[in-house]
C-alpha cells in the first residue's frame, strides 16, 4: 500500500531488449560483424529475416512456457492439497523421469503423434519445463510457515482463499525462480525444434551445421543466447520484486 512499484530492476533488461530488437532490423550490422569474424566465409547470414526467426522462437517459448507453468503449478498445488497428498510421490517421480529423458528422443517419438513443426516442439519443451516449476511450487508452498496457514484457516478463509490470498503470494518468489529456470531452458532447447521443422532461431544453427557455415550457426546461437539472457533478466527482476515482498516473512 505504502510501497511503490519498484521499476529499477526492470531497467537493464528493457535497455537490452531495445538494443536486441533494433539490431534485428539491421542485418547489415550482423553481416559486418560475422564477416569480420569469419573472413573466408561467403555466407554469414541465414536467409530468413531475423525478426521472423525471433518471433517464431518467442511463439514456441510462449506456448511451451505457458503450458509448463500451468501444468507445473497446477500439479504443485494439487499435490500439496490434502486430497492430492497421496499423489505427491508419483507426480514428482514422473516429472523427474521426464526431465532425464533425452530431448532428441522426445522429438523423435512425438513427431509421429503430433506431426512436424510447432506442435511436437512445444510438446517436448513443455515436458522439460514442467519440472522446475513443479519443484519450486512445491518448495514455495512448503516454505509458508504453518502458523500463517493455520491462522488463515482459523479466521475462516475457505481453502481456495487460503491458497490464492496467502499460500501462493508468499510462495511467489520461489515459484517465479522456477519459472525463470523453466523459460531459460525452453529458449535454448527450443532450437532443437528446427529439426522437426518448427523454424525459429534453431533454423540458422541447423542450417549452418548442415552446410558447414559456422558463421550462420553462430548467428543463431548469439540470437538465442541474447534472447535467453533478456528473458532471464526480466524474470529475475520480477523475482526480485516478489522476494522483497516475501522477505517480510522472516520478520513476522
Amino acid at each position: 500500500m505504502t510501497r511503490t512499484w519498484p521499476w529499477r530492476p526492470f531497467l537493464a533488461p528493457t535497455i537490452a531488449a531495445i538494443v536486441y530488437g533494433a539490431s534485428l532490423f539491421v542485418p547489415g550490422l550482423w553481416e559486418a560483424v560475422l564477416g569480420a569474424l569469419f573472413p573466408d566465409e561467403v555466407r554469414v547470414l541465414y536467409h530468413a529475416p531475423m525478426p521472423l526467426l525471433v518471433w517464431q522462437t518467442l511463439l514456441i517459448v510462449a506456448a511451451s512456457s505457458a503450458l509448463s507453468i500451468g501444468i507445473g503449478m497446477g500439479l504443485g498445488v494439487f499435490v500439496t492439497r490434502p486430497f492430492g497428498a497421496d499423489f505427491f510421490d508419483v507426480v514428482t517421480d514422473l516429472s523427474n523421469l521426464g526431465q532425464t529423458f533425452p530431448p532428441i528422443a522426445v522429438f523423435t517419438l512425438a513427431v509421429p503423434l503430433l506431426g512436424f513443426g510447432f506442435r511436437p516442439t512445444v510438446f517436448a519443451l513443455t515436458i522439460y519445463g514442467v519440472l522446475p516449476v513443479l519443484h519450486n511450487t512445491i518448495a514455495g508452498i512448503g516454505s509458508v510457515p504453518p502458523a500463517i496457514v493455520e491462522s488463515a484457516r482459523g479466521m475462516g478463509f475457505t481453502p481456495g482463499q487460503t491458497l490464492r490470498k496467502v499460500e501462493l503470494p508468499l510462495a511467489s518468489a520461489v515459484i517465479i525462480a522456477g519459472i525463470r529456470v523453466s523459460v531459460v531452458i525452453n529458449v535454448s532447447t527450443s532450437t532443437i525444434g528446427a529439426i522437426a521443422g518448427a523454424g525459429g532461431l534453431g533454423a540458422p544453427i541447423i542450417s549452418g551445421l548442415a552446410n558447414s557455415d559456422p558463421a550462420v550457426t553462430l548467428q543463431g546461437a548469439l540470437l538465442t543466447t541474447a534472447l535467453a539472457l533478456i528473458l532471464d533478466g526480466y524474470l529475475g527482476a520480477v523475482q526480485h520484486v516478489a522476494e522483497g515482498r516475501s522477505a517480510q516473512l522472516d520478520a513476522a
Binding site: M1, A147, S151, G156, S246, A252
Partner: peptide, 25 residues
C-alpha cells in the same frame, strides 16, 4: 465451518499475521 470460524476471534502467537498484508489489511 467457515461461518463458525468467522464468528470466533482467533489469535495465536506472533507469527499469525500475514506478512504480505499491511496492518490495516
Amino acid at each position: 465451518v467457515e461461518d463458525l470460524r468467522r464468528g470466533i476471534g482467533y489469535a495465536i502467537q506472533g507469527v499469525g499475521l500475514f506478512p504480505h498484508w499491511t496492518v490495516h489489511e
